[in-house]
Design a protein around this nucleic acid. Structure first.
Length: 861
RNA sequence: GCCCGGGUGGCGAAAUCGGCAGACGCAAAGGACUUAAAAUCCUUUUUCCGGAAACGGGAGUGUGGGUUCAAGUCCCACCCCGGGCACCA
């Protein structure tokens, strides 16, 4: 019975081949990678750790963006394995998160049930793509056996402080030994509790994470979000600001991402300067990066929320100040920033004294000064700061120039480096020297000191959510207390009702039995943010089933160390959306663990590659509402997994943004069909195939050997460079060559299958096993376990080469010459050639440029 | 506004160090096979001018300049598209 007429005939029987090999791999655990000391581990091989950013298993299943990066790492893994490396290539699930919780709110079903269902779907989809993951190492961040260690790491952070002298984390027990008080120690822990401004969303009745707020509105529902102070757990990531910036240096990351992280950290050096308040004992400290402009400070600005505002404000300004503060408080972040085209503010009526010249300057409040950065107060130098300039112009405040711009400067408000003027202490000094001098002057008089500030804020680590890791912490008499390790994991109780409470209380607070730890102690009811689980998952992969440590020491040292580089994971591939947060948070945790001696490298990820977004066929971002979403399941059903893999790699460079093309999938599908027909032919219209009579155990002719060895060379070099698209082009060229050959030597075909194997593992395995069945002298498979072929230089060397003849840079002819012809001979030959003679006749030859093996350019006049 | 990424045929793209622009694939056209179609195989395909053709000549990598014997590639200025950031003193 032939195929139904409506269905096109398959290029090759991928629908039989692919499940067959997937089953084989599963049954034989082909891709299981033992750890050091385990049976089957070969310590003589070098290690290579290839990691994908693990997915959040959403209810929608895999989209075509996932297999892009996953195929790239799969190719690299298979290639390295064939090259004789021990390759660690694992997969898991970042499964805590909002959608599962939202679904639970709607249905009352525990999130672990939906999560389990989604994970099963994702896993089977990934298996259908033929990826060579070691599934014995699969992890799930919502598994208590996993998050017990997430909680354990939190305890290590909680029990540490940052030692400024060594710039490392140290156990707080050292502070206890020094006799510090409970309060002093708590104030220095890397995990601490603070009252901070959070995003409160009245519409949803809950607190939102920063990343859940878009343009001042909730990402879900689009309700307005306001700031509100709340008691929160914080992680002291700012302590690591310098190291997180400096230690990017030796990582093989895209420069753009490194820059992005450095900007995010936003280190800036400057000085804190104390201004006394006129007529009071108090003082206000400001932060400035330009202490050299102190003589140009003509007013001062406090953030509206600044603690001293009330006491400074004079009675006649009280009403105006109150009204302004009211107005600012009611503004969302969006209104405060995006719409802040025009500066606003009011005078407090109070005055400060400039410490360098005793001048009395007015104190204003304005929302262009942020309470959360620096000291929440600035000295305004309108002549040399754009924002101050704008404000001063608007409110008619004096502008005094104290830096002379270099000649030719036309800017009204000069913000660059120049020479100090009108500044008695530093007149004539260039900016950098002036800064040093005035800072020293201030320090001598205890009026200020050198300071470093960061844009980076401490990490707000608590969420008022159900579906996240509970904190291993209890509260007794209003004080927090770590639970002992023996009580891990702390498992959240099931709830009747997962809805947010409507107050700022976390959902867990509704489980009263669970919350009550003892007569005098209650459990912490906040949970950790989704980032927590992904901060260390790469470590768990090194020893995923260890139940006495987050990962065994030997396994961690082998997979993360051993490459003499700062980063442990050799290759990490994922999307740019994690350029800052995930990568910064993971680096922070890793450094704490490194300082405490738990891991062997200072950095988690040595080489980072970002895959580019795949757009819809219309060139727009894929989205349900546009209706341009491509479902990988459908692509696999119609063309097979090998075609999907191959197309995703053939579309263009991995890092680039590129549109989907169904026609393009058909193109690579046809290519795989051509490869199939190099080996097999079919007599009827069905799925019965026999070996092609052109496949023979014969000596390969030179032209075939040449293209084959060129293909070995190019495909190998391109995998190393992750230029998969051009590797595929070369394999197409090789296939076209073989298609037109009358005889297809077995040795050439077998070698070609090795090259194709990382890209199209199912088809290549099948053809190899068919070939081996007919020619038993070939090494027995599976192909993926056989060594990668080596190219031989002798087949690449050309006897004769084509040299281009140019006259005045224009191509006028070509010459076939022996490859070893020297420059002089080439020059003589070029000058006497008929083709060049036509163009140089009657003209003066002024110069002849000879580029051996490439071209001769004759310059005439 | 600032910071990235990108602009090459009808389309996705290629071009190791400055050395023949457009490999490979898609689409299109023609041919072979077929009663016919699909599939497959072969050929053509940057563009303009001349030529029946072989071929020859000119132009051409967003725009305008520059460096060079030679520029997609290096330098300067600008335009357009995509993404990110948002007053951090």
């Amino acid at each position: 019975m032939s195929e139904p007429s409506t269905e096109r005939r398959r290029q090759y029987p991928f629908h039989q081949i692919e499940p067959k090999w997937q089953q084989y791999w599963e049954e034989h655990k082909t891709y299981r990678m033992p750890n050091p000391g385990e049976h089957g581990f070969d310590p003589s091989k070098p290690k290579y750790y290839v990691l994908d950013m693990f997915p959040y298993p959403s209810g929608d299943g895999l989209h075509v963006g996932h297999p892009e990066g996953y195929t790239a790492t799969d190719i690299v893994s298979r290639y390295r394995r064939k090259q004789g490396w021990n390759v660690l290539h694992p997969m898991g699930w970042d499964a805590f998160g909002l959608p599962a919780e939202q679904y639970a709110i709607k249905t009352g079903q525990h999130p672990s049930i939906t999560t389990g269902r989604n994970v099963n779907r994702f896993r089977s989809q990934l298996k259908r793509l033929g990826f060579c993951y070691d599934w014995d190492r699969e992890i799930n961040t919502t598994d208590p056996e996993y998050y017990r260690w997430t909680q354990w790491i939190f305890l290590q952070i909680y029990n540490s402080y940052f030692d400024e002298s060594t710039k490392t984390a140290r156990p707080v027990s050292e502070l206890e030994a020094q006799g510090l008080s409970r309060e002093e120690i708590d104030a220095r822990r890397l995990a601490y509790v603070a009252e901070v401004q959070v995003n409160w969303c009245p519409g949803l009745g809950t607190v939102l994470a920063n990343e859940e707020v878009v343009d001042g509105k909730s990402e879900v529902g689009g309700f307005p979000v306001e700031r509100r102070p709340l008691r929160q757990w914080m992680l002291r990531i700012t302590a690591y600001g310098d190291r997180l910036g400096d230690e990017l240096e030796d990582l093989d990351w895209p420069e753009g991402i490194k820059r992005h992280q450095r900007e995010w950290i936003g280190r800036s050096e400057g000085a804190e300067v104390k201004f006394s308040i006129d007529g009071r004992d108090d003082s206000i400290t400001v932060f400035t990066t330009r202490p050299d402009t102190l003589f140009g400070a003509t007013y001062m600005v406090l953030a509206p929320e600044h603690a001293l505002v009330d006491s400074i404000t004079t009675p006649d300004q009280k009403a105006a100040v109150e009204a302004y503060r009211q107005q600012v408080a009611s503004k969302s972040d969006m209104e405060r920033t995006a719409l802040a085209k025009v500066k606003t503010g009011v005078a407090t009526g109070g005055y400060a004294i400039n410490p360098v010249n005793g001048e009395r300057i007015p104190i204003w409040i304005a929302d262009y000064v942020l309470i959360s950065y620096g000291t929440g107060a600035i000295m305004a130098v309108p002549a040399h700061d754009d924002r101050d300039h704008e404000f001063a112009t608007q409110f008619g405040l004096p502008i005094r120039e104290v830096v002379q711009a270099p000649a030719g400067n036309t800017e009204q408000c000069f913000t660059g480096d120049g020479i100090s003027i009108n500044s008695p202490l530093m007149d004539g000094l260039p900016t950098q020297e002036a800064k040093r001098k005035i800072t020293a002057w201030l320090e001598e008089r205890a009026l200020g000191r050198k300071t470093i500030n960061y844009k980076l804020r401490d990490w707000l680590f608590a969420r008022q959510r159900y579906w996240g890791e509970p904190f291993p912490v209890i509260w007794r008499d209003g004080k927090h207390e770590a639970l002992p390790e023996s009580e891990l994991p702390v498992i959240p109780p099931p709830l009747e009702d997962y809805k947010p409470s409507g107050t700022a209380e976390a959902p867990l607070s509704k489980a009263t039995d669970w919350v009550r730890y003892s007569d005098h102690a209650q459990r912490e009811t906040n949970t950790m943010p989704q980032w927590a689980g992904s901060c260390w998952y790469y470590l768990r992969f090194t020893d995923a089933r260890n139940n006495s440590r987050f990962a065994g020491e030997d396994a961690e040292r082998y997979w993360m160390g051993h490459n003499h580089k700062p980063g442990g994971v050799d290759l990490y591939v994922g999307g740019t959306e994690h350029a800052v947060l995930h990568l910064l948070y993971a680096r922070f945790w890793h450094k704490v663990l490194y300082d405490l001696g738990y891991v062997s490298t200072p950095e988690p990820f040595q080489k980072l590659v970002n895959q580019g977004l795949i757009l819809g066929e219309d060139g727009q971002k894929m989205s349900k509402s546009r209706g341009n979403v491509i479902n990988p399941d459908h692509v696999i059903a119609e063309y097979g997994a090998d075609s999907l893999r191959l197309f995703e790699m053939f579309m263009g460079p991995l890092e680039q943004v590129k549109p989907w093309s169904t026609k393009g999938v058909e193109g690579v599908y046809r290519f795989l069909g051509r490869v199939w027909r190099l080996f097999m032919e079919s007599a009827d219209e069905g799925d019965t195939y026999t070996l092609s009579p052109k496949v023979q155990d014969a000596n390969a002719p030179m032209p075939l050997l040449k293209v084959l060895h060129e293909t070995i060379r190019k495909v190998g070099a391109d995998v190393e460079a992750m230029a998969f698209n051009t590797a595929i082009s070369q394999m197409m060229i090789c296939t076209n060559e073989l298609t037109s050959a009358e005889v297809r030597p077995v040795s050439v075909l077998a070698t070609f299958l090795h090259l194709l194997n990382p890209y199209a593992p199912h088809l290549s395995e099948e053809l190899y096993s068919l070939l081996h069945a007919n020619f038993p002298s070939l090494p027995a498979g599976p192909l993926s376990e056989l060594p990668w072929p080596k190219f031989e230089e002798k087949y690449l060397i050309e006897d004769t080469i084509e040299v281009v003849l140019q006259v005045n840079g224009k191509v006028r002819g070509k010459l076939e010459v022996p490859a070893n012809m020297d420059a002089e001979a080439l020059k003589a030959l070029a000058l006497s050639s008929d083709r060049t003679q036509e163009h140089i006749a009657g003209k003066e030859v002024r110069n002849v440029i000879v580029v051996p093996k490439r071209l001769v350019n004759i310059v005439v006049k």
